[in-house]
C-alpha cells in the first residue's frame, strides 16, 4: 500500500491494489465461523461480540475516517434498540422489518442532529455529542410509559428469524443472525471507505481547511457519513434488543458510548477491522475478568488502554500491521 511503489504501476493499478481483498481478511471471516464448532456454549457471547463490533464499526466511519470524535454514539445504538423492542411489542415481532425500522429511526435522528455536528470540531464536538447522548438517555428514562424507564422495556417478543429459526437459549440463531448482519454492514462500510467519498472523508480528517480550498463541501460530507454511521449503530442496537429480547436504559448510557470509543481506540481506529478486534479483546476479557472480580474489571481495561495508547498509537491492529510489514521486509 503505502511506502515504496513498485516500478511501472499505473495509477489505476495502484488504486485497485489498495482495495483488493487480502488473504488475512478472508482468513479472518472464515475464522468467525469457528465459534459454532469450537465454543458452542459461548455463542451468546459471540453474538454480543459481533453486535459490539458492528457498533464499533459505525463509530470507526465517523471517528477513524472523518475524524469526528463522539462521546454520545450510544444515542443511535439505543434508538435502534428501543425501536426494535417497541416494534415487537406494539406492531409485530418479525425481526428483519424490526431491523429496517430501527435503521430508519436512527438514520432520521442522525440526519437531524448531523446539521449541528457538521458545524463543530474537536472539543466542542465531544461536548455536543456527549450532551445529545445524555439528553436522549434522560428522555428515555422519563418517558417510562413508553420505554419502561429504569425497569427496562417489558414484553419484547421476537418471532423466529425468516419464520424458521427460533432464537434459542444457546444463541445459535443469535450468533448466525448477528454475524450475517455484521458481515453485510462490513461490506457496505468497506465499499464506502474505498469510494471517492471515503477518500473525501480521509481528506477532512487530514486537513479540513485544505478541503475547502479544493472546493469540497465539508459539511455535506460530514452530514452524510454521520447519518450512515447512525444507521449502522441503530442496526447494532436493534440486533441486541432482538437477540436478547430485552431493552434496558443501559443501551443509551454514557458508559456504552465510552466503551465503544475505548474498544475502537484499543483495536485501532481508521482500519475497519480495529473495532472488530477491539470488541473481541474487550468482550472476552470482560467475560473472563468479571467472573473473578466484577468491580476490579475496569482496572485492567484502564491499564490496557494506557499501555496501548502509549506504545501503539495506532491501536493493536496498527501495531500488528507494522510488525507484519517489518517481518515481510526482513524476509526480502
Amino acid at each position: 500500500m503505502a511506502g515504496a511503489a513498485p516500478e511501472g504501476v499505473t495509477p489505476h493499478q495502484y488504486l485497485e491494489n489498495q482495495t483488493r481483498w487480502r488473504r488475512v481478511e478472508i482468513a479472518f471471516w472464515l475464522a468467525t465461523l469457528l465459534p459454532f464448532v469450537v465454543t458452542p456454549t459461548y455463542l451468546s457471547l459471540a453474538s454480543q461480540i459481533a453486535i459490539t463490533a458492528l457498533f464499533a464499526l459505525s463509530l470507526d466511519l465517523i471517528l477513524g475516517y472523518a475524524g469526528i470524535v463522539s462521546l454520545g454514539h450510544a444515542a443511535f445504538f439505543g434508538l435502534g434498540a428501543y425501536t426494535a423492542g417497541l416494534m415487537s411489542k406494539f406492531v409485530w415481532g418479525e425481526p428483519l422489518t424490526g431491523l429496517v425500522a430501527a435503521a430508519a429511526i436512527a438514520g432520521l435522528v442522525g440526519f437531524a442532529t448531523s446539521f449541528i455536528i457538521a458545524r463543530f470540531r474537536h472539543l466542542a464536538l465531544i461536548m455536543i455529542t456527549l450532551g445529545l447522548g445524555l439528553l436522549l438517555h434522560e428522555a428515555a428514562n422519563s418517558a417510562s410509559w413508553l420505554t419502561g424507564g429504569a425497569d427496562g422495556l417489558q414484553g419484547v417478543d421476537i418471532w423466529p428469524l425468516l419464520g424458521a429459526f427460533k432464537f434459542d437459549l444457546y444463541g445459535r440463531t443469535a450468533y448466525a443472525y448477528s454475524l450475517v448482519v455484521l458481515a453485510l454492514m462490513f461490506l457496505v462500510a468497506r465499499r464506502l471507505i474505498h469510494s471517492p467519498f471515503g477518500l473525501a472523508l480521509r481528506g477532512i480528517r487530514e486537513n479540513a481547511v485544505r478541503m475547502s480550498a479544493i472546493g469540497a463541501p465539508n459539511r455535506s460530507h460530514v452530514r452524510k457519513v454521520y447519518t450512515i454511521s447512525a444507521v449502522i449503530a441503530g442496526i447494532a442496537g436493534a440486533l441486541l434488543a432482538q437477540t436478547t429480547e430485552t431493552v434496558s436504559l443501559e443501551v443509551l448510557s454514557f458508559e456504552r458510548s465510552a466503551d465503544v470509543l475505548v474498544i475502537l481506540i484499543l483495536g485501532g481506529a481508521g482500519r475497519l477491522y480495529g473495532g472488530i478486534l477491539g470488541a473481541i479483546i474487550y468482550m472476552v476479557a470482560r467475560d473472563q475478568f468479571s467472573g473473578i472480580n466484577p468491580q476490579f474489571w475496569y482496572f485492567w481495561i484502564g491499564l490496557l488502554l494506557v499501555a496501548v495508547v502509549m506504545l501503539l498509537p495506532n491501536g493493536i491492529l496498527g501495531g500488528l500491521a507494522r510488525f507484519a510489514e517489518r517481518w515481510q521486509g526482513g524476509r526480502r
Partner: peptide, 21 residues
C-alpha cells in the same frame, strides 16, 4: 490527494457506493 481534488471538481466525491478505481 490530487485525485481527491479532481473528484471534488467533477462532482462525484460524494459517491460512496462505487469504488474509487
Amino acid at each position: 490527494a490530487v485525485t481527491l481534488a479532481v473528484c471534488e471538481r467533477r462532482g462525484f466525491a460524494g459517491v460512496w457506493w462505487r469504488g474509487l478505481p
